[in-house]
Amino acid sequence: MQLHHPKPGLGNETVAMGRRATRTERRDEEFTAYLHARQPSLLRTAYLLTGDRHQAEDVLQTSLAKLYLSWDKVRDRDSVDAYVRRIMVNENNSLWRRGWKKREYATSDEAMPEGAPHVDEYDEGRGAALWDVVRSLPPKARAVVVLRYYEQLTEAETADVLGISTGTVKSQCSRAIASLRERVPAHLHPGRPEDS
C-alpha cells in the first residue's frame, strides 16, 4: 500500500505541536492515510457497482463515513478493504429504497462525461453492449461480477465479502454470462471467427 503525503492540516499538527497525539488524532491520522491510499481504487469499484459517477461518489462517501464510525472496531487492518466493499455493496443495494432522484448538475466541458471510457478503436461496440447488460443486472448480481472480474476476488473471497454462499456467487456469475450471451448481438460475441 503506497501512502500519499498527507495534506497540510490533516494530521501534521500533532508532530508540529510536539505533544503526544490524542486517540482521536491518531485515529484521524490513520484514517486519512487510508483515505489517500485507497480512495481512488474504492471510487473505481463504486462506479462499477452503481454504473453512475454521481451515485458512486455518494455511495463512497456514505461507506467511508460508516467505516470512520467503526474504525476503532475493525481490529484487523487487513480486513478494512473487505469491510468497506461490503458496506458499499449494501449501500448500493439500498439505493432502490430511496427512489433515487437524479440531481441536476451543471454541464461543463470540464466535467467527466458520464460513463465515457477509453474506447479501443478495435472495440466495435462490444464493450458498450457488454456494459449495458452489466448495468441492467440487479444490484446484487452486479456486485458479484464486479468483485469477481474487476477486483479479481476468488469465489470464496467474494462470498465472504458479500455474506453469501459460494454457490450463490457461482450461480450469479453463470446467469450474468448467460445474459451477455443472450443480449449482446451475435456479431459482437467474443470468439467469433473475425476475432481469431
Binding site: 462506479y47 462499477l48 460513463g115 471510457p117 477509453h118 474506447v119 479501443d120 464493450g127 457488454l130 456494459w131 452489466v134 461480477v145 464486479v146 472480474y149 474487476y150 479479481q152 450474468a176 451477455l180
Partner: peptide
Amino acid sequence: MGDEFERR
C-alpha cells in the same frame, strides 16, 4: 467483462 471494467 474484466477487460471492459478496466477500460471503464
